[in-house]
Design a protein around this nucleic acid. Sequence first.
DNA 1: AAAGATTTGTACGTATGTATG
DNA 2: CCATACATACGTACAAATCTT
Lengths: 229, 229
Amino acid sequence: MTLFEKIAMELSEQISSGKYSVGEPLPNESDLQKIYEVSRTTVRKAIDMLVEEKLVTRKKGVGLFVAPEISNQNILEMTGVMKPEVIQFNKQQIKEEYLRQAGDYFQEALGMKSSELVYYVSYLQSDNEGITKEVLILPLNKYPDFKVSSLKVLSIMENMNTGTQKICDLDQNLQLVKADHELSKQLEIEHGEPVFKISNKYLDVDGTPVSIEYRYKSAMNTKYIVDFD
Amino acid sequence: MTLFEKIAMELSEQISSGKYSVGEPLPNESDLQKIYEVSRTTVRKAIDMLVEEKLVTRKKGVGLFVAPEISNQNILEMTGVMKPEVIQFNKQQIKEEYLRQAGDYFQEALGMKSSELVYYVSYLQSDNEGITKEVLILPLNKYPDFKVSSLKVLSIMENMNTGTQKICDLDQNLQLVKADHELSKQLEIEHGEPVFKISNKYLDVDGTPVSIEYRYKSAMNTKYIVDFD
DNA sequence: AAAGATTTGTACGTATGTATG
DNA sequence: CCATACATACGTACAAATCTT
């Protein structure tokens, strides 16, 4: 029997005897070298055997450890299955929902008579990036089956797909505006703070507007790029 | 391959994929340390390589940034798949279109394997409000019938509706960034001018991401709303 | 303007990984 | 099997620049 085999056997016995318990560190190679009065090469060959037998694990830059028994964690690591992600459900809070006449603005924007009715729904949505206010304008004639209650479980875009027209295009517009009193209160920011205002105008295949959505989001949280000069 | 080489390669891929676009900050060393679960020494060695390749710049006391001189050619070399075509039509000009591997970022963002292919299409669109740059990411597996030539007649959203999944939700994100060299040239604005960057992540009914779209639009043309006081 | 927090820059010590004579 | 050298990796400590409060 070679020297390193002897050493491997001794260590193996000590591990199974409980001198070094599972998960605990072993003496490092330098110490083992002194203990058995052999070269590091020999120590390493001994440890090589124990690693092969999965009795010992090595951690580069750290040390030697008695290999842990197989656990769920090990299995996950071995099979490469990811740990479950933390799913954050957004908090949604509907602020306003009512039917109103289109009026002059929406008449033009949505191509309808100003006396025709639209659903107006606004709600707040908070996630890890802050609070977003969303406003949705749905013309009644295009969404005959729309129910406000369904908004509580469906997303805006899903709702829009319940309409009679298929949405095929998106006319997107952007503004940087100052928060008025209501908006600053809703988004929990200072009065006058800059706010991104996006308007999404959804169009059907003919380019006819189907619905409009507005989003308000504080611009302060956005990251600015630094100069390189 | 050593650990720090792996990390350098991953980061390099993410940069070329657009997860960290030109001029934007990277996660700081401490965060990278947590992300990759390695020591700071290893993170620094990985970054050393990227700095050497001029992909990343360091700013003492500030952080890490994607180096500004990345060209399309670099990206092509890094992802190494296709040559770009330039197709001019109407007021839309396709700047880049190629197949590439998803890489780590789109792997995560689109829930696919990093080796799977995505279409990458970017184009400029000019209208009365200025020039908009749009970037579209379409996973090949969800758009088996997609042809770049069809982009000439269809809008982005129409194209996205040609996929196998029905789009039901929109995860929208906003940043105000400064134009880097490439962007300022494309949008015909000054270097460093503020630019709206919108990312639209389209989801199917299950919340699975189907495609991603980025839009860059000068923020200077936006109309500011007057104070309400 | 001062104090503290954050982030990169630098240095050192220790442990394992690999190669060679 | 020993001795040595170097690369890789972890961890800690402190300095320097910058940002925040």
